[in-house]
Amino acid sequence: MSWDGIGMILAAILTIAIFSLLYRDNPFYRFAEHLLVGVSAGYYVVHYFYSSVIRKFAVPVFGQGDLWLLPGGVLGLLMLFRLGRKVQWVSRYAIAFYVAAWSGYLIPSVIKERIQAQIVGTLPPSPGSAPWIAILGSLLILVGVVSILIYFYFSVEHKGAVGKISQVGITFLMVGFGASFGYTVMGRVSLLIGRFQFLFQDLPQALGW
């Protein structure tokens, strides 16, 4: 039997070991669970090390002589100070660098693409420029977005007109959450289909059963 064939049988055994949790917690499941954590961590750490330390630091700095990449390595080393209790504060420099850099380029992009573009998309087309059904749909979206934003505005008490508009917002949110639930079920079922396709179609086919 080929290594791939052996691998598929092993994959099937491990798949069943994890499914065994559905009956009840048992040592086979626990074994598979811990093996998954160990193997995954081992797999990831190799990629993390190669892609960051080797490829983004060692190759450009030592291979291509690009000294501008040197501070990246220094900041990365500072991060390792988290491992020592007394010197943990040193890692704050790396964390501050990372979080602030992210914050810096996030501000204009989020304002432009997430806030401004979404607000523009909410404005209904002017009458006559689109079919009336499209205009009605746009108005519905406008009502929904505005009422939800008012619902999220906690600086005023949700009473009177604000309270009523908030209720409209909650109504839209509930329909949205319902749609999310429907899609969540779809996603989870698809994952199960994938495993059953492996057990009942791919495995027998590969092994010539």
Partner: peptide, 14 residues
Amino acid sequence: TAIQAVLVYPYFQT
């Protein structure tokens, strides 16, 4: 994924 799909409708509409 289905779970993410429901969140990208606003970007598709714009």
